[in-house]
Design a binder for these strands. Structure first.
Lengths: 417, 417
DNA sequence: ACTTGTTAGTATGAGGCTCGCACAAACATT
DNA sequence: AATGTTTGTGCGAGCCTCATACTAACAAGT
């Protein structure tokens, strides 16, 4: 009945997360028994995330493996207080020993989530169960901040949050409102804060706090948040689409976050939907972004004479349409169609079949989502692989912070195969 | 010095190929040591495919594993005559024992490749080294053929080809000029031969010949052929784009053929590039297919008064432009731009960074490819993840047959993780 | 109260796989 | 002939999963 405490630690592969150089090209590397252990531990934890508290026996059934295998995987995690056994649940009428559901311990090491925007930084702690605590934010100096000032603000904010952690966090995940070099864990460019361009935030955080740090750009973080803590939970394929002042997206394909070469995938805003259409901020014509952002919405609202056109957004538009304001209903429909066009293209290209909507359209609620869904279904030839469904994401800040934390989780769970 | 002949057989997982029902959902299944063996064997063979004849020591270095590991993987394959040792190659100046390069044995089991078009069936044998032999084709009855007649034609053609095989083939791969249900290994619809709709070709072949049979649609087969035997060799990410009377494509992402839900991915022809543009055969407006197929080319050629506009294609267009025929140069440029628009969208969405062109544009040669490449590079914002490169695929029939065979290879090598 | 049937979780030994180490074989160089 | 280098092969260790057997804990029927 006595067990030797296993020497395995979770995560075993912290070095990988902190950005070690990979010498063997991916796809050529072979597997070893040790990797099997890591990978299987990741999959078990992922299943636990997807399903909520679950007994060992149930996990074994779902994974199609022996119960002893699950016990072997799970026991070290219990020893390290990553997981805890819940109260026994009553067996079915058939009888049997009551199952002890496993779930993430509140005492497990948390994750630090960070959202870096052009004007401020937000940080928080996220438990493995997805609860947020220790939220802090620090604004940057308004006029032409210097990089050292921003660095100080980030450090201040992070230190406050980390001070609240009872155990050392598993890592720091950062959602950046701009272009990111995921491999080098550095910022490439933030449009509204060019001083951040080239900032090696990942290295700075790792050096300062001794924690693995991962960066990715905002839409990708939203997707990851959806995958672990939101509407994308348990999904194998889906896409996140963000609309607002700009338009972005991210893809989860075949059970993995898809980044593309140098993380260049998901630049949906600048796909063409109108050859020789309106000129876009990128200098090209007819980008999706020219017809499916609030900028377009403002211009149209002004053109048809809606009150305060500069303050229009999905929330107000739905309200106006509901109130019977002339033209509002048609504008809502056209806006929904414009958003739907790009989603239809995405569906035809990679067929994720499930979309989580973020950003401005969230304010439009179910009405907006249904309008978009209807247009997408009309725009995609019917057979293309089953039902297409839609969901509305979390509120903006929450989604980004959960997503930032999810970046760390993804690395820990999705052992690269 | 004596070895026990290993009991392992390649392929071990034939049952999987022949379409067994998967009970554990993908992504939840755990790995076992036996799977590690299969997966590693697949990766070693894949590396061999990518690099050509290679010694064990070199394979070990590339994979980052111990030499003994490679020996253990490779020895059973030598015993089974899947591989053979080549002549020793001279060591470098540093000296050392001469390496014995490994390569696929000409006596290895071949693969049967089949191309099923609306009017005929073609079959052949393909060795693991990519050489084609025993080609046969049988035309279907011209006017309203019955399904039994088609079935007989397929059987006749296949039997002739299989009769030439010295060893039992590893399987039959089929490239279908129409929609395919990859999971059920059945044909969904072939536009010009509706009698084929719903035909369970995979089951028929497996039952008749006792071989694993795999179906996929034509563009996907082209991509797979490129991956194993053509320009996509060794690539981890690339796309195949087929233009002609219709427009299709396929994606190889992260070292895997990407199919999407129910194989609905890659339906590029009906992505929107011109909202409210010309009406498409699918009933919608502004599909990419409306501006980047030979149908569009014919209409334009007629409009600007080019001779025999109904026989225009890329090959002739390039020739006309070279001969200085008025308008030809501009038309070529516009056609290239139209093709490039869709490729640019694909690049922005999944960023494969490498494209193999198939179909009509192959006739236009390097001139056509360069014209398309130039437009794509101009249409994609510069930073998006490095160079974008292009290649011209094999001639049409050869590409499809190699691709069909490649479908079987993909299943055998890409052990599902 | 006792037996039977069922399910949960654990201990143990077997089998697969990769790894590190040691060793023989086959070359180049000095 | 001696030395250094590289290739490929045994061998035992370590990690992992699996099948089997066992204990623990419950329900239901007698």
């Amino acid at each position: 009945m006595e067990r030797e405490p296993s020497p395995q630690r979770w995560p075993i592969d912290e070095e990988d997360v902190s950005g070690e150089v990979r010498t063997v090209p991916p796809g050529r590397a072979l597997l070893s028994s040790a990797m099997v252990g890591s990978a299987n531990r990741g999959r078990v934890l992922q299943t636990l995330f997807d399903l909520g508290p679950t007994s060992r026996a149930e996990l074994a059934r779902l994974a199609g493996v022996n119960r002893t295998t699950i016990s072997g995987i799970v026991q070290p995690l219990l020893d390290q207080q990553v997981l805890v056994e819940g109260d026994p649940i009553r067996p079915s009428e058939a009888g049997g020993k009551p199952a002890r559901p496993l779930w993430f311990s509140p005492d497990a090491r948390p994750i630090c989530g960070m959202m870096l925007m052009p004007d401020a930084v937000h940080t928080c702690l996220v438990t493995l169960a997805g609860t947020i605590s220790a939220e802090h934010s620090v604004a940057f100096p308004t006029e032409n901040p210097k990089i050292v000032e921003i660095e100080r603000a980030i450090e201040l904010c992070t230190s406050r949050t980390l001070a609240s952690a009872r155990r050392e966090p598993l890592g720091i995940g950062v959602a950046v409102g701009g272009m990111v070099d995921t491999d080098r864990r550095a910022i490439i460019a933030v449009n509204l804060a060019p001083v951040l361009n080239g900032f090696q935030l990942g290295d700075m955080l790792t050096k300062r706090y001794g924690l693995p740090a991962l960066l990715d750009h905002h839409p990708r973080a939203l997707l990851v948040g959806d995958r672990w803590f939101g509407k994308g939970r348990g999904m194998q394929n889906f896409a996140a689409v963000y609309t607002g002042e700009v338009l972005g997206g991210a893809l989860y394909l075949g059970g993995h976050l898809y980044r593309g070469r140098s993380g260049a995938g998901g630049e949906l805003g600048h796909t063409f939907v109108q050859v020789d259409g309106e000129i876009c901020s990128c200098g090209r014509r007819g980008c999706w972004e020219t017809i499916a952002t609030v900028g377009w919405l403002r211009r149209q609202a002004r053109a048809i004479g809606i009150d305060a056109p500069d303050e229009i957004n999905s929330r107000r538009l739905v309200a106006l349409a509901g109130a019977g304001v002339p033209g509002a209903r048609d504008l809502l429909d056209l806006y929904a169609r414009n958003v739907a066009v790009g989603i239809a293209n995405l569906q035809q290209t990679v067929a994720p079949n499930f979309y989580v909507l973020h950003g401005d359209v969230v304010g439009g609620g179910e009405i907006m989502a249904e309008a978009i869904a209807g247009h997408v279904r009309a725009l995609v030839p019917s057979r293309s692989g089953g039902e297409i469904s839609f969901a509305i994401g979390e509120t903006e800040d929450r989604a980004a912070l959960l997503g930032a934390a999810g970046l760390v989780l993804s690395e820990l769970l999705q052992f690269p195969l």
